[in-house]
Write a protein that binds this DNA or RNA. Structure first.
Lengths: 191, 191
DNA sequence: ACCCACTTACCTGTAGATCGGTAGGTGACG
DNA sequence: CGTCACCTACCGATCTACAGGTAAGTGGGT
């Protein structure tokens, strides 16, 4: 019973941490503000996560678990699933903001999330290549190999997120992503 | 003479600030560490820039001045100039890191650079649309209008930078960008 | 049913740093 | 003599983290 309550608390804390990181980034986030959001003192929070970095690691791990659960294994993705993922993200600015902020911070030296993102982007590119191979075979209509198109696909996803976060009214993220897919498919029908 | 020395100092400080922001982001950067790098005390630095935010603003303004100087006016860009810009960036990880870190941070609430980037991306998209129109006219080979392709072009530039910063050995930024241009051109020659 | 040893889930208090910024100099130079 | 370019000396606010306490369980033996 206590155990269950504890797990529940941890989940609450992680959700609060996600919010605070979205609002202020990891460096700008404080243990106190996360604690406050779940009705704890800062020291009470440290009972669950011994250091600030441990909390960040838990947030990243949860993201990984979420990403790779519920038939969302990256092996099984297809292009149209990616399309709906983008649509889904467009309805969840909070999550997108959290991880865009973390990605941005992580390129600075010795950032605790740097290794996580480095490794993760390697995996993402290779998943994207798989997706593309599944869809197009060894050559896309443009002549590109899946391995060469994968970084572009990944870049578009991230880059659109930043533009959309800065000004949601200026960029329709799902539409823009569909435009990119049209590019990949070599489809020249007029939108 | 004193005036000249002062301007010189300001330039040194801005360069140091650029470095420190690249290493730790804006929030992680401290006035003390910037000051140390130019051989000043933190309070000595505040003589030139009255607040930390003023220093950031100056850094961003300098970036703007640099961007739009020396025939680099965004009006005059062409696609092959963009290509060499990417090559140029690939030799300057420091600068790229500074502005990628700032862009990432800027999506958080009330970040002092948020407005700057929001406005700037609006301008960038419109410049990119101009470049594309100059190159392709009203329709790209894919059928996209310049306005719809511009966010994608912008996204690819930024997204590739993040991947490259995280793992320079994993992504050849100039090559990948050329791949994207091939996509835009609808060129299906095998690379 | 009850006591006891132990754990869990917090809290108060605070050490120890650091940070941005203010106030008020001082010396060199024009 | 006045202004510029700094410096020393602080201040108040945070922030992370550690120490140590306490109240409320939890489980086993009797």
């Amino acid at each position: 019973m206590v155990r269950a309550r504890s797990e529940e608390r941890r989940a609450e804390i992680l959700r609060a941490a996600l919010e605070v990181i979205a609002e202020r980034g990891y460096r700008g986030a404080t243990l106190g503000s996360v604690a406050e959001r779940v009705g704890l003192t800062q020291q009470g929070l440290l009972h669950y996560f011994p250091t600030k970095e441990a909390l960040l690691v838990a947030v990243l791990q949860e993201r990984d678990r979420w990403d790779t659960s519920g038939g969302r294994d990256r092996e099984n993705w297809r292009l149209d699933l990616l399309e709906s993922l983008v649509e889904y993200n467009a309805m969840r600015p909070g999550i997108v903001q959290t991880f865009s902020a973390l990605l941005g911070e992580s390129v600075t030296d010795e950032h605790p999330a740097r290794e996580f993102f480095t490794e993760r982007y390697g995996q993402v590119r290779s998943s994207m290549a798989d997706v593309l191979r599944l869809e197009f075979g060894e050559r896309l209509p443009s002549g590109l190999t899946p391995e060469r198109a994968a970084p572009l696909l990944t870049a578009v996803l991230d880059g659109l997120q930043y533009q959309w976060l800065l000004d949601p009214s200026a960029v329709d993220m799902p539409d823009a992503f569909r435009d990119f897919l049209r590019l990949l498919r070599g489809d020249d029908s007029r939108p």
